[in-house]
Design a protein around this nucleic acid. Structure first.
Length: 167
DNA sequence: AGCAAGATCGGT
DNA sequence: CCGATCTTGCTG
């Protein structure tokens, strides 16, 4: 169970996102060690992608997306739900993969609640962290693609990109 | 300082 | 379809 390293995450988000399907998120909190297999993700790609938070430029919240892949981007939505994202791509190309589902829980807000993900994970480095990382696994050959959920505000071009991957 | 919007979810 | 709930970023 090899930990995914920076070489995995610094690739383009359209490669990283589907490659994350089937990979396992490890959570190590004290004596508890839990593992969740990713089964649904979405890609958010650069400043031109109007669905991507980074399209509004670099702010306190989006700053982490401008780093090289491997960091965690966490934010609160609707005052209630933490969204878990993995930064991808090289420095200064803001990209992230939203973790939408794992086998035990469907829905990005439900899985973070179950996993105990909150603001304290913002900026955590998946390639070195002691409490969260992702391990390699056989690629999922057959998966589905579709438009991203909840991004109607992004306009026709971007809301219709088939950048949601699931199996 | 005030305000509008939001990568959701669960209940009508 | 609608409300909950609160941080963020923009405007003044």
């Amino acid at each position: 169970m090899k930990r995914l390293d920076t070489d995995f995450f610094i690739r383009d988000v359209l490669e990283v996102a589907p490659d994350l399907l089937g990979k396992q998120i490890h959570l190590h909190n004290g004596e508890n060690h839990r593992i969740f297999r990713i089964n649904e993700v979405e890609a958010y790609r650069g400043m031109e992608d109007l669905a991507c938070h980074a399209s509004k430029g670099k702010t306190n919240r989006t700053e982490i997306m401008f780093h090289r892949g491997g960091y965690i981007y966490v934010y609160l939505i609707y005052g209630m739900y933490w969204m878990l994202n993995f930064v991808s791509g090289p420095d200064n190309i803001p990209q992230a993969v939203l973790i939408r589902g794992v086998e035990e829980f469907n829905g990005p807000g439900k899985l973070t609640r179950a996993m105990g993900i909150d603001k304290s994970y913002y900026g955590e480095d998946l390639t070195t962290s002691e409490r969260i990382w992702v391990s390699d696994a056989k690629p999922v050959k057959k998966y589905n693609m579709g438009s991203r959920i909840g991004v109607d505000y992004a306009g026709e071009i971007w809301k219709n990109k088939p950048w949601r991957y699931y199996y």
